[in-house]
């Protein structure tokens, strides 16, 4: 590794630390929660932040955690929650996504109208997204 690459890696590593990221994500979440759904502010924030993380995830600018080469057969257990969620969501979506047949977003919308819940959802989304970027 030449000196400039080494410096770049050190800066990326420093930026990737929780001490830096948690306050940044918290600030974005607190600001993002001010914007209701379907507002221009929410659209711009999600597109800008999501786009930045998408770009970071495709570039080599962040250090990545190791992943196993192969999954054990027991990984199939994950099909249970995955398929349950997919089937219940699909049934309710094709049944019209109504009060009687609520999709996940129908159920989440009233909760996400509250400021704190919305801020927590932003924070959870950013943390999960960052986890993917680092994979």
């Amino acid at each position: 590794m030449d000196q400039s690459s080494h410096i770049t890696a050190e800066i990326s590593g420093a930026r990737a630390r929780p001490l830096v990221l948690v306050p940044v994500f918290a600030l974005i979440s607190l600001a993002g929660a001010l914007f209701p759904s379907f507002s221009l502010g929410a659209e711009v924030l999600v597109v800008a932040v999501g786009g930045t993380l998408f770009w970071l995830g495709l570039s080599d600018r962040t250090p990545r955690r190791s992943s196993p080469d192969r999954l054990s057969a027991r990984a199939r257990w994950w099909l249970v929650p995955g398929l349950t969620l997919g089937v219940v969501e699909a049934i309710n979506f094709f049944a019209g996504s109504t009060l009687e047949h609520p999709t996940l977003s129908n159920l989440a919308d009233p909760i996400l109208e509250g400021y704190l819940a919305r801020a927590a959802a932003y924070f959870g989304w950013l943390t999960a997204y960052w986890g993917l970027v680092r994979r």
């Binding site: 999600v46 495709l58 996400l112 997204y129």
Partner: peptide
Amino acid sequence: LGFCWWLGWHFLAR
């Protein structure tokens, strides 16, 4: 990464 981006857009912006 695209799916995660879409999740944020769907739940927080839409």
